[in-house]
Amino acid sequence: MERNKLSWLTLFIGPSALWLLLLFVLPMGAMALFTFRAGSFGAEREVFTLEHYRDFLSQHSYHLLLWRSTWMSLWVAVLSIVLSYPVAHYLVFRAGDRRILYLLILMVPGWISFLLRIFAWKVILGSGGALNSLLLWSGLIHEATPILLYSPLAVVVVLVYVWIPFAALPIFASLQRIDNSLLEAAADLGSPQWETFLRVVLPLSMPGVGAAFFLVFIPTLGEYVTPLLVGGVNGIMYGNVIQSQFSRALNWPLGSLLSLVMLVVVLPIMLLFNRLIKLEEIVEI
């Protein structure tokens, strides 16, 4: 029987375990080793060096960019949560039978192509763009200027737009799980609504808020597509310097190192995420 269990287990877990080992875990190792190579191609690739580490440590622009990306991601995560929490609360406690339908309405934009959603904002914000032409046409402004576009603020706004549905989902799930009798008990004991919210609902929804935070904060830290489209020179993030090592600079070892640094920053946060958040918070409704 034990032997049987083992073979079933190999059949069920084996394939995905192998896939993740070969295409997720081992490539991370390969990336870490590549940081010691002198160049991207040919003979240079065979030379071992610490040059890129020295480079990284001495270049303050990398550190500043990493710091700024962290701040931007924090803003994005906090704003998406603050904007979506009231909606999740409304859906769970006020929307009644329609909650699932309303949640679906809120989620639909989230599942539409990420690239196109950012592109939509480029169309809106550009100097020849929709918002500008609308304002010109209506006489509110008199000459075309790119509003908001090509700044860190534009990147934050667009990312908040992108993430709102995904932040709402785990908050919704955790609010949904709150036992109604707790709310009734609080009301019976004479607690006013705001106090019930602060002392019962909010603390019990913290797992969902936490899940939303991690779900938004971690991927945003490494963002490069949004800054590429709406960030301009001033709005670049840490992910952009990684990407440019592979497109323009063709310095793969340095790109690997920059990416490894990101992994080292993100890994403890991901482990914390694993510790604190049950995956059910994210999918199960």
């Binding site: 877990i13 995905s16 375990a17 993740l20 295409l23 997720f24 875990v25 081992l26 490539p27 991370m28 390969a30 990336m31 590549f34 991690f214 779900l215 971690i218 991927p219 945003t220 830290l221 490494g222 963002e223 490069y224 992910g239 990684i242 990407q243 592979f246 793969w252 790109g255 690997s256 990416s259 990101m262 992994l263 993100v266 991901m270 482990l271 995420f273 694993n274 995956l279 994210i282």
Partner: peptide, 25 residues
């Protein structure tokens, strides 16, 4: 196994992209 399976859900795409590119190359 659960932790590792969940990681690609949040890991920044650029990190995974670089790792896969280097590994495959």
């Amino acid at each position: 196994f659960l932790s590792i399976t969940a990681m690609p859900l949040v890991i920044p795409s650029v990190v995974l992209a670089v790792a896969l590119l280097i590994g495959l190359i």
